[in-house]
Every structure is written in C-alpha cells, then in structure tokens.
C-alpha cells in the first residue's frame, strides 16, 4: 500500500501488470470502455485472458477476441451496437475457440458487488426459471435462503487478477476520480480485483484536488497499480464531459469486425501498426480530419448547480466552553 508516483507509459503498465492467463475485469459499459488499454493488450499479444464484465459495447472485446488474447468470457452482453453484433466473438464462440459464461446484467454486477464487498457470493433475484442458471453453474447456484427456506440464486464473487478501467481524472498516486454516466460501476470490478487496477485517465490532477472532493473518488490510491495519462483513452466510446460516442468510427470498425478476412487488416493498421494511443489518434486525424475528433467534444459545459461546500470546522471554537449542565446533569 505504498504511497508513490504510479504514472507510467501504457506500454509499461500493460507489460508489468497484465500477465498471460490472467483474469481481467474489463471496465466500462456502452461508455468509458478502456479502448487504449484494449489496444495495448492486443499490441503486446497477451494470451489466454479470462474476461469479467457485465456488458460491453463499441467492439473492444470483439477486437481482443479477434486478436486471440481471450480464452474465456463471463458476461451478460457483448456488442458493437452500431453494426448490431459482436462478430468476432460470435465466430470464435461458434468455432469453439472461446468459452462463454452467460449472466444477466444484474447477475453480473452482483458478482462484481460480491467481489467489491470481499464476500464469496451475493443473493440475487431473477435467475431461477431461466436457462442461464442451468448453463452457467460456474457463476450461479440456487440455494435455500437459510432464514425463509425459499429458493434464491447466488452469484459467485468475481475477483479478477487485474482490472483495467478508464476514468476522467486520476492523481499520480492512483486515486481515481469519475462521475456522470457510470454504467457498470467500475469501482466494483476495480476494488474487487486481486492485484489492483490499471487506469487510463483523461487528465492527471494533483492529490490536493482529489482531497477537495473525495466523494468523487471511485478507487483509492492503494488499489491502483498504474496511472496512465491518456486523453481519448475510451475512444470510440464516450467519456462524460470530454467526448461523446464516435458513431461513425464504431460503424467503420464494425464493418471490419463483420468480416473474418478484413478484421486482421484493422488490427494491423489501427493497433499493431500504431506504436501507442497517440499514434492511433494521429492516424485518425490523418484519415478523418481533426474535425472528426472536434465533433465529439461537448458543445457547452454542464456544471453542477448544487453549491457543494464541505465546510471547515475550527476545533478552536470549543476552547474555554464549559460542559453543558442543567438541574439533572451536573458538570
């Protein structure tokens, strides 16, 4: 739990903290998908990863599977919504190349919650009577409620070896700050991970700034392995306050995902052929213009109207104040 500067390059973060055969909490939902980290894992040709996630959009997981990094996925839903399917995952699953363990989103987030709480499982309503609980006995069991005697499903705690997430801000020590559209509650997956979390952040901020608004911290420093400053790190998914969803790019990438023959070309051009996320962004600007990225930025701000003030209470005000007394309570 050492307090130290954990800033490093995305290359170092992934090579040091993601091992072949790891289980990985894959952050985000339809927003805040850790795409820069996805690309780096592909670049470093990591193998045999097990993915824990509730739902994931924009095809990040599809790329990871296509690149041969994944052996097993535990999730409720995977998509590139903008082409209506996760084609590489579908091909891999139908060819028997990956194992898939189905959950519902609530079941999956409950599994992450159990990991977050540090307990082995959490009861959850809504699986008995479906085929999910019949086929995914690795993640779900039906037990008798010890109090009422009724049947209830329990979701096994998901505790990944390592978590990868994207956030708006982080400080050098690894305090992670996020707000707005949250999706799959990355703090569950991050805090429940065994070794810790790799975070890419739009901005690095001073710890003093974190301390001024600790309500917004989703992961405290000691759980963080690496902090990577990475603007546009969730692209083409959105990062609240910084950029919206890049629909055109999702569709473009999705057309590659659709074709088993074309997809390797996308991996070559946009991932293996780019040294890092900056190179990916440069390529984007070369191909689709600066305006392609500018279009994604918010038109105007939308700052909280609540006047939040944590207040400072001076303990000196009690100096010399006598004990309160009355006719029953004497000093």
């Amino acid at each position: 739990m050492s307090v130290r500067d954990k800033r490093m390059s995305i290359k170092d973060a992934v090579s040091r903290y993601v091992q072949d055969g790891d289980s990985v909490y894959y952050g985000g939902f339809q927003i805040m998908v850790p795409m820069a980290l996805t690309h780096e894992i592909i670049r470093q040709r990591k193998k045999n990863l097990t993915i824990f996630n509730a739902s994931t959009d924009v095809g990040g997981l599809d790329l990871l599977v296509a690149a041969g990094c994944v052996k097993e996925v535990h999730l409720a839903w995977a998509m590139n919504w903008y082409v209506k399917a996760p084609y590489a995952i579908r091909r891999a699953f139908q060819a028997g190349e990956i194992q898939r363990f189905d959950h519902s989103n609530f079941g999956a987030t409950t599994a992450l919650l159990a990991g977050f709480l540090g307990i082995p499982f959490v009861p959850v309503r809504g699986n008995i009577g479906t085929d999910i609980v019949k086929h995914n006995t690795a993640d779900l069991k039906i037990i008798e409620d010890p109090f009422s005697g009724e049947k209830i499903t329990v979701a096994r705690a998901w505790r990944a070896d390592v978590a990868i997430i994207h956030a708006q801000k982080a400080d050098p020590l690894g305090n992670v700050v996020a707000w707005g559209t949250r999706g799959v509650t990355d703090e569950f997956g991050a805090m429940g991970s065994k070794r810790g979390v790799i975070v890419t952040a739009e901005e690095i901020i001073d710890t003093e700034v974190v301390r001024s608004d600790p309500d917004r911290t989703i992961v405290p420093y000691f759980k963080t392995l690496a902090v990577v400053q990475c603007p546009w790190g969730a692209h083409p998914s959105a990062c609240r306050g910084y950029y919206g969803l890049d629909i055109r790019f999702c569709q473009y990438q999705g057309k590659y995902e659709r074709s088993a023959d074309l997809l390797p070309k996308f991996l070559d051009e946009w991932i293996y052929g780019c040294e890092d996320h900056d190179a990916y962004l440069k390529k984007y600007v070369q191909m689709f213009g600066r305006e392609g990225l500018d279009r994604l930025k918010p038109k105007s701000g939308f700052k909280p109207k609540l006047d939040i003030d944590y207040g400072y209470h001076d303990p000196a005000v009690w100096q010399g104040v006598p004990q309160y007394t009355d006719k029953y309570i004497r000093g």
Binding site: S55, A78, R90, Q94, D102, S104, F106, R125, G126, D131
Partner: peptide, 27 residues
Amino acid sequence: STYEGGTYAVPRVRFPGSGGAGAMAAN
C-alpha cells in the same frame, strides 16, 4: 436472446446475450 438453433454449446446463431433483459423481465 441467447442463441437460435443448435445447442447452447454449439449454437447455429449466437446472439449478444441477456444484457439487462433477464433481470428486467424478472423484477
């Protein structure tokens, strides 16, 4: 919303999966 045709292990067409639908329909 999981698959159509074949079996769970070897489906003819595999869909994206439950997402939220399963728990929504339950609760």
